[in-house]
Design a protein around this nucleic acid. Structure first.
Lengths: 156, 156
DNA sequence: TTGATTCCCATAAAATACCGTGATATACCA
DNA sequence: TGGTATATCACGGTATTTTATGGGAATCAA
């Protein structure tokens, strides 16, 4: 039994004609050790798919359960967006999930997917888009933290 | 046995001439694993039907009796409305429920119903209305983003 | 009877589980 | 250390199951 649960690394996998993708084996190990399913949804801010464990969303749901929030409008709107889009994905015996048309379209993924670890969650990108995004992020980080030396190569 | 009970995803199903609708299989799995019936009532704030497990309403009831002072009178009234309107619905062997005229009319549903997950509850919409509502919410959330960010970030 | 509600069966489509294979990585041994 | 055996993984194809949805018979009520 492992103690920590972090999605890491960047993995490139093929998406077959049915929309099936192998979840990186490291990710699978994490998911299996807790639940056996994984939650995916369209990122609200980027053209990519995000994934996480159900317990993350469960926390949000619990907060909404309070009577105080039962009729709250703002929270109400939010839950519609989050839960309305999220969906449970289980993987077959060989470790593949079947991504929906909606998700693939949002992320502009056709035949190749890039899995990017983000700690408690991970993202799935179209390779081209990820390349651009990664460059953008690096530039951003450098701009905001001039004191930090470029770590490009070692960080990979 | 699952640990979490979240209604998720957006599913479009047909309402047949008898008024029957298939409850999305994911929803059914949740309902079956806990109770065998589901509670539906007219949303107080939108032209849609809301559904949940009885335990959610039970929790609401408990909180209302425990902390009466802390809740405003209007909230008390709202609770009355919900309980006055709520009703148990069971599904047949193929997983369909029969929604009442009252509910369908309130949600303006005729031959197609859209199920929208909301975590501990879910909503049932007329397709057109949902499309508009979704657009409204997206615009709203985007507008309020700065303040909402912390919550969203965690949920995503 | 008429109208409605519940139960049961049929079917097409979609989701899911299962099998085989080649490639890669890991473990093992001399 | 080098080389081989073993296990794991990604990925294609195929079989099986589940789901949504229509229709009909049985049940019940007015």
């Amino acid at each position: 039994m492992r103690k920590t649960f972090l999605f890491m690394d960047t993995v490139i996998n093929k998406v077959d004609t049915k929309g099936r993708v192998s979840l990186p084996s490291d990710y699978r190990a994490i998911v299996k050790s807790k639940e056996s399913e994984i939650i995916c949804y369209r990122s609200l801010t980027a053209p990519c798919i995000e994934g996480c464990l159900e317990e993350l969303l469960d926390k949000l749901a619990s907060e909404m359960e309070d009577a105080l929030d039962f009729f709250s409008e703002t929270q109400d709107d939010l839950t519609n967006l989050v839960f309305g889009d999220a969906k449970r994905y289980s993987f077959d015996s060989t470790g593949r999930i079947m991504l929906s048309e909606k998700l693939l379209k949002h992320a502009q993924i056709t035949d190749t997917a890039v899995f990017v670890g983000k700690g408690r969650k991970f993202q799935i990108w179209n390779p081209e888009n990820w390349k651009k995004e990664e460059a953008r992020i690096r530039a951003e980080v450098l701009k905001k933290r001039p004191s930090i030396r470029p770590v490009t190569e070692e960080a990979r």
